[in-house]
Design a protein around this nucleic acid. Structure first.
Length: 102
DNA sequence: ACTATGACCAGCG
DNA sequence: ACGCTGGCCATAG
């Protein structure tokens, strides 16, 4: 099967996220655009839903720090193991949010 | 916490 | 190319 270009761009950004940190869908979209591609928060979510299995998808959360619907359990376990700080059910974005330097 | 509205993009006919 | 639809969103009220 065929992997579209924009999908590859999104996935390569997600791969950059270091363990112990997270990025929001919107932030990933921003980086993709900085890199000359096109993306929106929602399109990133769609890509993750379909092709996220090959990358650290659990490091991508929404801007409120909520985990992806249907994967809360697994994401929580993975993030927990990496030492990502939580505030109740949500990731503490202030402490865990990450953005690439260049 | 919940709803409503906005905005953007890929997929499909 | 074009319009339509829906999405693991964002933000304001």
């Amino acid at each position: 099967m065929e992997i579209p270009e924009h999908v590859d761009r999104v996935l390569s950004v997600v791969e950059l996220i270091p363990p112990g940190h997270v990025m929001s869908y919107g932030a990933v979209a921003d980086v993709v655009r900085e890199r000359g591609g096109t993306a929106s928060a929602r399109s990133v979510g769609t890509v993750m839903a379909r092709y996220g299995g090959a990358v650290p998808w659990h490091r991508v959360v929404n801007s409120a720090g909520r985990l992806p619907p249907g994967h809360e359990r697994r994401a929580r376990a993975a993030l927990d193991a990496e030492g990502v700080p939580f505030r109740g059910e949500r990731v503490d974005m202030r402490a865990a949010a990450w953005y690439p330097e260049d």
